[in-house]
Amino acid sequence: MSGITWHYVLKFIITGDAAVGKSSLLVRLTDQRFLTNPDPTLGVEFGSKLIEIPEEGKIVKLQCWDTAGTESFRSITRSYYRGAAGCLLVYDVTSRASFTNARSWLADVREHADPHLTCILVGNKVDLCEAEDGTSNGRREVSTAEGELWAKEDDLLFVEASAKSGVNVEIAFEQASRDILDKIKRGVFDDDRSPGVKLSKPANSNLNIDQGSTRPTCCS
């Protein structure tokens, strides 16, 4: 009803091990705040945000589904992969296990999702590495180089971020969106084929939103 306009709606999913900070990343993106003590996500939660990609001159609406990392919800989470245009694969830089497990999450994504899905590897919680007495490596268990290397091997985008300090969070989503827009430009997606991308005015829908307003408001 308010006249917010956007050019594309992109569906994102956020996935990765439990407690790597997926929900915190989403809340940081949508509300610019940090959850100090979040409960584990049950099932899936939704959040959305408008971002601008200036060089394309496009406004993009991100619809993000934040999935549960706990194993028991894994089958539910899988239902979401197919419809997504982008995926944030999150691990915790202070936990080697979460980095190792990210491979199995990626395998899941590759198996169920659209082949053209854009996936970005996000190393979260970098704030914990710099916090301790000036040494840059503090509690870090996964080095930046290592993450970068794996991302390159598997053709993923890569960024290290912190939901707590907010560093690189928006950039992660922007990078992924930019990549998706680029794919759209190259014609990788047909309009109907990728369920995760939608133009602002769906052509196949008969629901004419402006119907009410364009009708002459005669009330004689």
């Binding site: 009803m1 006249g3 939704f46 959305s48 629901l207 939103i209 009410g212």
Partner: peptide, 24 residues
């Protein structure tokens, strides 16, 4: 969760349109 998703879509104004009520 679905409610907040629904609000993000253009569908709330369609609800008004269904009633012939101008959404803006």
């Amino acid at each position: 969760s679905n409610q907040s998703y629904f609000r993000e879509t253009t569908l709330p104004s369609s609800l008004c349109s269904l009633l012939q009520f101008p959404p803006n």
